[in-house]
Design a protein around this nucleic acid. Structure first.
Length: 936
RNA sequence: GCCCGAGUGGCGGAACUGGUAUACGCGCACGACUUAAAAUCGUGUCUCGCAAGGGAUGUGGGUUCGAUUCCCACCUCGGGCACCA
């Protein structure tokens, strides 16, 4: 018996595949194409850890299956090599980033190749290769031409440690994403890309792609589409109104003041009218200097009134005050809001602090259980929370005819005020009468089914809070006693006891201040009183002359970095001609070599010091010009790399139209969750832009997108160098082999979830492969022993791979090996089929076994097994017999048996009769081929 | 605070669309082989109980003949967003 020597055979087949180019995609083929893609790695100096290959193996399995299914597969790889770690390393050591990148990517390549992943290495790309970034620069020039790349002076997020401007996406909790330093604000000229021009399409077109739901959701949240209304508020002694953005025009009758962002442009124009200008100016100045983290970190809202000015609420026509406060963002909506403190938590908080009027205009509507079909009886009602005279307890009514718990409640009779009704009800229902009115709680509406009265109610509740002065009590009528029982509830008990949602809310309101921010029934709202606020939103908008407006959270993309290791922005500044794009024939603008990689303190790129490179002739007038010294962000090269793979060596175009037409869009793109909002959105944006220029054939780059979970260190913490828990795949490959590592990484847990690494458990995957290896000695030619098992296996493995349920696919293969291993002999057909199914997971050992069986060509050139459903049908099926939902017996039925026959069989079963003894079966439920449930 | 996702043996995790909970693997225990050990193979392994039987899928309710799966409330963990009007 030959031993399974992974070292020898893995090396052997890797060389074989390489030489024959079995994984190289053909640009022309009879076969249908399939483009599978993973996110190309950043080649760091630390090398690969076991987490890196997880997505590569996953998509490798998909790609290998596709090849066997007859597709011409493109599964490429390259290096996303521009970026800060290499640059920081260069700053520290003085080493040329080109040299470092070369060394790191060589190491990555060696490591990835040792795993036997079926990448088409002939198409390897590198974003830092001038032949590549020539086209990154070229695409930038197209943006520039169309006015979508522009320079703007703006407040940027500045990381003082990295000395770099950050995009909003790179600021986490007001800190630099990379180093965690608090981000400052700086005014700087920056290159911008107008991604907001594409916001609507980036949002809408998500409907047409097959992304995992949470990925779509992530993108949608990030784009932050919000459909609202812009409304003009006239200013009392000024000719121009102030416009606000709101999604809740229905609350406008409750708008009791306006708030502008400190940066709002109208403020300067209103300077003469503002009587407390110095105070206002001071506030604006302070707001400007606050760092992002301070602004977020401050829980307490601050603001200043613009005295001497009043706005007119266009709904109530009343004068309201105007404030500036930094809780309003200048960059969102119109930079101004109408504040509705009664129905917005932030406004509520602000109003309380500055004693501004709070006006309720919406009464919430609570819908409890109702009886379908019955009409609603309208009622005026009261609900009262009554506190004990000495203890911290509250009165509750436990209803006898219904499973209800309520506070004191009842109807308001004609001629009664709600308070009179409340007092009367308390006395009637509880006998207590020494009451002290404390306060009203906001009124509510409720829809509910009144069980004792058997009718649907639509009630308007006026709500009270009373305290008892003492325990004096009158006799309660029997009639009331029959209805409900009186209980004293502690604070903790109240929440469990009270049934109606509206009363629960009263209770919560009593505990703490709350605003109601949902829709409901309008009041205090003129002619709209009594109407459903959601339904009349539009009418109210028209009433105040507002217009519909869609806003987005997404902002334009800050596209320049003041760093060395990135693509130079191909622009020349000329004193006479202004900003001149570098002519396309002069591309690429190559990065010059420098002595010092340190960014300058002025915030300029180190390139600014390379005078020889900076000073050039203006391409237009041939006069003296200066190169732009900003470089592009790391995201640039990765925004279009998947297009380059289709034609990686083309020196005339970024990719030929022919190849793009053949290969794009990407059929399946798998990547990390962390790129849902950045890379994925950016590349969709670039792709749509290129599509609009007629440069790519589709409007979306990726048909399907899935994501994988991280591999964590043992114990479930993040794998990192500083924690010392990094597992190097080299070591695993050496000890167990690439196939074992591959199988284990896929078997560990669900592909889309994070799992903790366990070196202890990897042995199980090795044992499985060894058992599979040993099966070769059980083959008997031309005999069919095991067809039934293999058919089931084909079905399950095929389906599981498509759903990326690799863990259960492997478990199915394990079950097959365990089952078949018990037999004396196995058929060659079954074994070969099994090898094909296993080959995407463990390509080396299966290739070896394939050849041992006498085949001369690669298993990669075979075809994926197809299962025959007719063979799967069992003749005899075991089903469970339950009695009252508990399994009591198992019976064998045959496929032809009718339902009645099966039921009879079950009822006759010995163990069943024993359990039925004494009772009579009321009902027998049969679930086809699964179980029978007998109800007694 | 808001929005997602998840809670199942000692551990990683299975369970299709509401239908026999704990597949598969690790670990552990025992046995076989061995002078011995490792490796391998076999058996067992949620829990209480001698058994009959009972109880378990974060907690508490609900719907159902039947719930890990659906509904409501809550707790814990992970991730995303974070004054977006």
């Amino acid at each position: 018996m030959k031993e399974y020597d992974h070292k020898k055979l893995e090396k052997k087949w890797q060389t074989f595949w390489d030489k024959k180019g079995v994984y190289n995609a053909k640009d022309k083929s009879e076969k249908p194409k399939y483009y599978s893609l993973i996110e190309f790695p950043y080649p760091s100096g630390d090398g690969l850890h076991v987490g890196h290959p997880r997505p590569y193996i996953g998509m490798d399995i998909i790609s290998r299956k596709r090849r066997l299914e007859g597709f011409n597969v493109l599964y490429p790889i390259g290096w996303d090599a521009f970026g800060l770690p290499t640059e920081n390393y260069a700053i520290k050591t003085g080493k040329d980033p080109r040299v470092v990148t070369k060394k790191n990517s060589d190491n990555f390549r060696r490591q990835i190749k040792s795993l036997g992943i079926s990448f088409d290495w002939s198409r390897e790309i590198n974003t830092t290769d001038p032949k590549y970034y020539k086209w990154t620069q070229w695409i930038f020039l197209q943006f520039l031409k169309k006015g979508l790349a522009y320079k703007a002076k703006m407040t940027i997020n500045w990381c003082p440690k990295d000395k770099i401007g950050l995009a909003n996406e790179e600021v986490i909790n007001g800190c630099c994403e990379r180093c965690g330093t608090a981000v400052e604000k700086r005014e700087k000229e920056q290159w911008m890309l107008a991604i907001t021009k594409y916001a609507d399409r980036l949002y809408k077109d998500l409907d047409d792609v097959d992304y995992l739901p949470q990925i779509k959701l992530g993108q949608r949240n990030w784009i932050g589409k919000s459909e609202g209304v812009q409304i003009k508020f006239p200013i009392s002694n000024f000719q121009f109104p102030i416009e606000v953005f709101t999604t809740r025009p229905d609350t406008i009758f409750g708008a009791t003041y306006l708030v502008l962002a400190p940066e709002h442009e109208s403020i300067a124009n209103l300077k003469l009218q503002i009587t407390n200008w110095s105070e206002v100016e001071k506030y604006i100045e302070e707001a400007k200097n606050k760092t992002e983290i301070n602004r977020i970190g401050e829980k307490i809202k601050t603001g200043v009134e613009l005295k001497g000015l009043k706005a007119i609420n266009p709904a109530t026509k009343k004068e309201i005050s105007i404030w500036i406060a930094d809780y309003v963002l200048a960059t969102y909506g119109t930079g101004a809001i109408m504040a509705v403190p009664a129905h917005d938590e932030r406004d509520f908080e602000f109003a309380k602090k500055y004693n501004l009027p709070i006006k309720n205009v919406i009464e919430p509507l609570f819908v409890d259980k109702i009886e379908e079909g019955l009409p609603f009886v309208e009622r005026n009602a009261i609900s009262v929370i009554v506190k004990h005279w000495s203890e911290n307890k509250y009165l509750g009514l436990k209803w006898k005819k219904a499973n209800w718990g309520t506070f004191i409640t009842g109807g308001v009779e004609k001629g009664q005020t709600p308070e009179e009704a409340a007092r009367a009800e308390i006395e009637e229902e509880t006998g207590y009468f020494n009451l002290k009115f404390i306060k009203n709680l906001p009124s509510t509406h409720s829809k509910f089914y009144h069980i004792p009265k058997k009718e649907n109610r639509f009630a308007h509740f006026t709500n009270f809070y009373f305290e008892l002065k003492n325990g004096e009590q009158k006799e309660i009528k029997n009639e009331e006693k029959d209805k409900h029982e009186l209980v004293w509830l502690t604070s903790d008990e109240v929440e469990k006891f009270i049934t109606p949602l509206g009363q629960l809310r009263d209770w919560k309101l009593l505990q703490k201040d709350m605003t109601y921010s949902g829709f409901g029934i309008l009041f205090n709202s003129g002619k709209f009183n009594g109407l459903d606020s959601e339904k009349v939103k539009k009418e109210i908008m028209k009433f105040v002359g507002g217009k519909e407006k869609t806003t987005f959270k997404l902002r334009d993309w800050v596209f320049s970095r003041q760093r060395y290791w990135g693509e130079p922005i191909p622009v020349i500044h000329c004193a006479d001609c202004g900003m001149v794009p570098v002519p396309e024939r002069d591309l690429p603008v190559e990065l010059p070599k420098v002595k010092n990689y340190q960014p300058t303190d002025s915030g300029e790129s180190p390139l600014a010091n390379v005078t020889k490179w900076v000073n050039v002739k203006c391409p237009k007038c041939k006069g003296p010009g200066k190169r732009e010294t900003d470089t592009m962000p790391n995201w640039a090269g990765s925004s279009w790399y998947y297009l380059r793979y289709t034609d990686p060596k083309n020196s005339k175009e970024f990719a030929s139209a022919k190849n793009l037409k053949y290969w794009t869009p990407v059929d399946w793109y798998n990547g990390g969750n962390e790129h849902t909002t950045l890379h994925l959105l950016y590349s969709r944006f670039w792709h749509k832009f290129l599509f609009d220029q007629g440069l790519v054939p589709t409007s979306e780059p990726y048909k399907k997108r899935t994501s994988h979970g991280m591999i964590l260190g043992e114990g479930g913490v993040k794998m990192s160098k500083s924690l010392g828990n990094v597992i190097n795949p080299d070591e695993m490959v050496k000890i167990y082999g690439a196939d074992t590592l591959r199988v284990y990484e896929m078997f560990m847990g669900p592909f889309d979830q994070s799992v903790a690494w366990s070196t202890e458990s990897i042995i199980g995957s090795r044992r499985f492969l060894e058992r599979a290896w040993n099966l070769q000695y059980k083959i008997q030619k031309n005999k069919k022993y095991t067809e039934f098992e293999i058919e089931k296996t084909i079905k399950k493995v095929s389906e599981d791979i498509e759903g990326m349920k690799f863990n259960t696919a492997i478990s199915t293969l394990m079950i097959f090996v365990n089952e078949i291993g018990k037999l004396e002999f196995i058929s060659q057909y079954a074994y070969e089929t099994f090898l094909k199914l296993l080959s995407p997971f463990a390509p080396h050992v299966t290739e070896e076994l394939w050849h041992i069986l006498g085949h001369k060509s690669s298993i990669n050139l075979e075809s994926w097994p197809v299962y025959d459903l007719s063979k799967i049908k069992d003749e005899e099926i075991k089903i469970a017999v339950q009695i009252n939902g508990k399994v009591r017996a198992e019976i064998m039925i045959s496929a032809q048996d009718g339902e009645e026959e099966i039921k009879m069989k079950a009822l006759k079963n010995e163990s069943v009769t024993k359990h039925i003894a004494g009772g009579t079966p009321k009902k027998v439920i049969y679930v086809k081929n699964r179980l029978i449930n007998i109800v007694i």
